[in-house]
Design a protein around this nucleic acid. Structure first.
Length: 255
DNA sequence: ATGGTGGGTCACCCA
């Protein structure tokens, strides 16, 4: 069972790239973020013609998450509990082959003095509480997505210079640890303990050419799912060239 | 280098 997460920065702009990548890599499940489209305008047919099932949670123009699966999708739940007034489409989960699978697009936060930063920290608290309920129930769980936080110094290109900046602020790392320390395992880091592999490079300023990136996209596994973990990796080739997302796909393989 | 590029939407907001 191969499960991929990919922030595609507009599914309509990236449709061909995604379908080509799926054909070449044949994952069981693809978790998408930043689809940037309402469900009615999602290019459903392109995926369904290739045999994929879909679960969609979009909004006009920004955010948006989706689950693409070779296997039937059951019990879809859209939206992260904890704030009924939150209009942003950033979380969807469903059951596939007995596994509870979530696609999450954590808010970027913009900057530490922005109101979006408080929203980001509050979102992490909601995610922590929601994950706690699944962990208490011993649900076999995978939460994949763009977490917009680099967990450790090895996950950023310059840990000294970046300390305190957005996506690597101590409060953000603390919020992430409060989530993972409940008993979620980072599939990439668990299987690649010392490897530096970024998943995002800013589109501005030639950061790809200088390899100035962050590892902010990953898959978090519950203990039951971690027992099945065989490998995890990502595909930097997708960051080269034109018309690409600023994020690359990352995945884990479960036995 | 408080810049830079890109998406969505159509004056800016977000990343």
């Amino acid at each position: 069972m191969k499960i991929v997460t990919w922030n595609v920065n507009s599914v309509r702009k990236r449709e061909t790239i995604i379908l080509d990548w799926l054909a070449a890599n044949d994952p069981d499940i693809l978790l998408l973020q930043e689809t940037k489209v309402v469900d009615a305008s999602f290019p459903k047919t392109s995926f369904e013609e290739k045999g994929y099932h879909l679960a969609l949670f979009g909004e006009p123009g920004r955010n948006g998450v989706a689950i693409v699966s070779k296997h039937p999708i059951e019990d879809v739940a859209s939206g992260l509990p904890g704030d009924a007034d939150d209009p942003q489409a950033r979380y969807i989960e469903a059951t596939i082959d007995g596994l509870r699978v979530a696609s999450v697009y954590v808010p970027n936060g913009t900057s530490t003095d922005s109101p979006n930063f408080a929203y980001k920290l509050a979102f992490y608290d909601r995610l922590r509480r929601h994950a706690a309920a699944h962990l208490d129930a011993e649900t076999p769980l995978v939460i994949g997505g763009d977490f917009n936080v680099a967990p450790e110094p090895i996950d950023v290109y310059d840990p000294t210079a970046l300390d305190g900046t957005i996506c690597y602020h101590p409060k953000e790392r603390e919020a992430l640890r409060s989530l993972t320390n409940q008993g979620l395992y980072d599939a990439f880091r668990a299987t690649n303990p010392t490897r530096r592999q970024f998943t995002w490079w800013d589109l501005r300023g030639g950061s790809w050419d200088r390899d100035e990136g962050l590892r902010i996209d990953y898959l978090l596994l519950s203990p039951q799912t971690t027992d099945r973990l065989q490998s995890a990796d990502s595909d930097p080739k997708t960051r080269a060239g034109k018309g690409i997302s600023d994020h690359i796909p990352s995945w884990c393989v479960l036995g």
